[in-house]
């Protein structure tokens, strides 16, 4: 147990130590004052602007900024759709993958363009190398950059006075990719290759098994349909398996950005539980570190851009407190395991020989501590990659990642999107505080008035409405219920998790739900679109509105927003909104499962 807490402590220490300098570095990059050691990238940056016809000095109003953002994402979405549909006739397809179905292409294109990376497919059995690289990996970079650009525009809204523009979308995006995401990804990808993550264009390998295995499989007729006997029972045959296909591919380059860009879409179906994606304890540590690195660093970027480091630290502290508390709950629940096992005489105590607790669905290589840490990090951030199967977590252990997503992905959250989401909650917190003391709320020197609060309401309500309405639709319609693998409370949890994941742009799957159907591809596709773009538009509207305002001088009546009191108020706002919105739904899923498990002990 103490070993686990030491690992968590090390993680927190390294994360904070790296996030602070990275945050300061990013602030300089976004101000157009990149440090000298990356000065050699400047000609490349200028070249990109020349190639794209971008005027670097153009200052966009919020409307133009938002429209550029929407247009860029639409084009990216269409490109991924076309690649997925046409991959069968395109190069770099050694496994001869056919084009995907239209509904899967629609879902996947939205998923990667919206930084969600929900996957209704298994990577190694569905996507060609070209689709993975040119479609999915490119979107991993640019969707993260879009989130960072929107955040930077919002921060400028607080800094600027009576300004019409909030920056240049194309410039902010190019700088995010060129100076932040590309160098970090290159560094991480090379390190991961050193740890054994595959990076290859060669076709899948066929290898001889050391120990052949005999399996029973359905016997097929001439039309490849499963045969049945006179009583309707399936006919099976015994088959000796002597070979195994080992899927490879350009994985390391995708995994690096999938973690750093809070994307999460695995190259392989098992995601980071796959030994070719995550082979060693060190690769596991680096990958889980990469999940939170940029979202955490952006808090310090905010402090630097606002010229008040205390504000960035307060936002970081609010996120860290919730993260640590929920990590403790998840870890303790998983370590406690299933009480029914004791009745069967199983030893679930942690010892030097075993992790103990609930090891179902977990890699023995990573154990309970690293599986819980990953599950909490990946759902706190809008990452969504997994190194253990969340469907097999204990009810409380599974509730934690689900609730973290439902909080709106603001506990570190996505690259950029996490912090702009948290700032939206901060605006709500100062509004509530303003109501209590009877003053017009202010945040970071700007008056928060009716328009900003209307936009805050839109940004907070859209994901809640999307998740709850989507879940309700899925459980009342036959097409939705058909995907459930485990009927009852757990089946409800599977649906709630899937829609929460898509409706908050996370992308992790509880598993156990057959989601590659036209119904789910459409439902989850729209959930991802709504929660991404109907948040970006109101957030940019807030940025434009704030930029146009005069700064309000600090007075005795100003609520300080860098103090522990404000951190508590902010956490309270996030938790109350999350609890009020989702507690009834959680009560029907993981909470009832938890009670069932302990009642039958």
């Amino acid at each position: 147990m103490s070993n686990a807490w030491m690992q968590f402590g090390l993680y927190a220490l390294v994360l904070t130590a790296l996030a602070w300098p990275l945050g300061r570095y990013m602030a300089r990059v976004f101000a157009g004052d990149a440090p000298r050691f990356v000065g050699w990238l400047r000609p490349l940056e200028r070249g990109i602007y020349r190639l794209g016809g971008v005027r670097e000095d153009e200052n966009m109003g919020w409307q133009r900024y938002a429209l550029a953002c929407l247009l860029f994402n639409l084009v990216g979405l269409l490109a991924v759709y076309a690649l997925a549909r046409l991959q069968g006739v395109l190069p770099l397809n050694p496994a001869d993958m056919a084009g995907t179905t239209p509904d899967l292409a629609f879902n996947t294109a939205i998923s990667f363009a919206s930084n969600t990376n929900w996957q209704s497919y298994g990577g190694e059995t569905t996507m060609s190398y070209l689709t993975q690289m040119l479609g999915l990996t490119v979107q991993n970079f640019v969707s993260a950059a879009v989130g960072m650009a929107v955040l930077v525009a919002l921060l400028r809204g607080f800094v600027l006075r009576e300004a019409r523009g909030i920056g240049n979308f194309w410039v902010d995006m190019v700088r995010s990719v060129l100076y932040v995401l590309l160098p970090l990804s290159l560094l991480l990808a090379v390190t991961l290759v050193g740890q054994g993550v595959v990076q290859s264009f060669s076709p899948y390998h066929e290898t001889q098994l050391v120990q052949p295995v005999e399996i029973s499989q359905p016997k097929l007729d001439a039309n490849d349909q499963p045969m049945t006997d006179a009583s309707g029972a399936p006919v099976t045959e015994q088959v000796m398996v002597t070979t195994q296909t080992l899927a490879v591919g350009p994985a390391a380059s995708q995994i690096a950005i999938k973690q750093l860009g809070t994307n999460g879409g695995g190259f392989f179906n098992a995601n980071s539980a796959h030994p070719f994606e995550n082979p060693t304890p060190l690769s596991n540590f680096l990958e889980v570190l990469a999940i939170l690195l940029i979202p955490a660093a952006l808090c310090f970027t905010a402090g630097a851009m606002l010229k008040d480091a205390r504000q960035g630290r307060a936002l970081f502290a609010a996120m860290a407190v919730v993260f640590v508390a929920l990590l403790a709950v998840c870890h303790l629940a998983e370590q406690a395991g299933n009480p029914l096992f004791a009745k069967l005489g199983l030893d679930v105590q942690a010892s030097e020989l075993q992790a103990g607790g609930n090891m179902e669905g977990k890699e023995t290589r990573f154990g309970i501590a690293n599986s819980a840490l990953w599950a909490v990090a990946t759902t706190a951030a809008s990452n969504g990659s997994v190194n253990a199967m969340h469907d097999s977590f204990t009810p409380l252990g599974g509730l934690v990642p689900m609730w973290l997503m439902q909080l709106g992905e603001v506990i570190f959250g996505g690259a950029g999107s996490g912090l702009y989401g948290m700032i939206v909650f901060a605006l709500m917190a100062v509004f509530v505080a303003g109501l209590m003391i009877g003053r017009t709320p202010e945040y970071l020197g700007k008056k928060i008035e009716a328009f900003e609060m209307k936009m805050v309401a839109v940004a907070v309500l859209v994901p809640c409405l999307t998740v709850l309405t989507g879940t309700a639709l899925a459980v009342v319609l036959d097409a939705g219920r058909a995907g459930i693998a485990n009927p009852g409370a757990h089946g409800f949890s599977e649906i709630l998790y899937a829609v929460s994941s898509a409706g908050n742009n996370n992308g992790s799957a509880f598993a156990g739900l057959s989601a590659n159907t036209p119904f789910y591809n459409l439902l989850l596709g729209f959930a991802m679109l709504l929660s991404r773009f109907w948040l970006i538009v109101p957030v940019l509207a807030i940025a434009g509105s704030l930029a146009a305002k005069q700064r309000v001088p600090e007075s005795a009546g100003t609520l300080p927003t860098h103090t522990p009191l404000f951190v508590v108020l902010l956490i309270g706002t996030v938790v109350v909104v999350g609890a009020l919105s989702f507690l009834p739904a959680l009560a029907l899923g993981p909470i009832v499962e938890h009670l069932q498990m302990w009642a039958t002990r």
């Binding site: 429209l67 247009l71 639409l74 269409l78 509904d103 629609f106 679109l529 538009v537 509207a541």
Partner: peptide, 30 residues
């Protein structure tokens, strides 16, 4: 089917783009 899904995507982005001037109108009214 391709046309159906493409129209859905285009429709969503057109609707999202329409939000932009609508929100700006709301802002100016403040």
């Amino acid at each position: 089917m391709d046309l159906f899904y493409l129209l859905l995507a285009l429709g969503f982005f057109a609707l999202s783009a329409a939000l932009v001037p609508a929100f700006e109108k709301l802002r100016r009214r403040q």
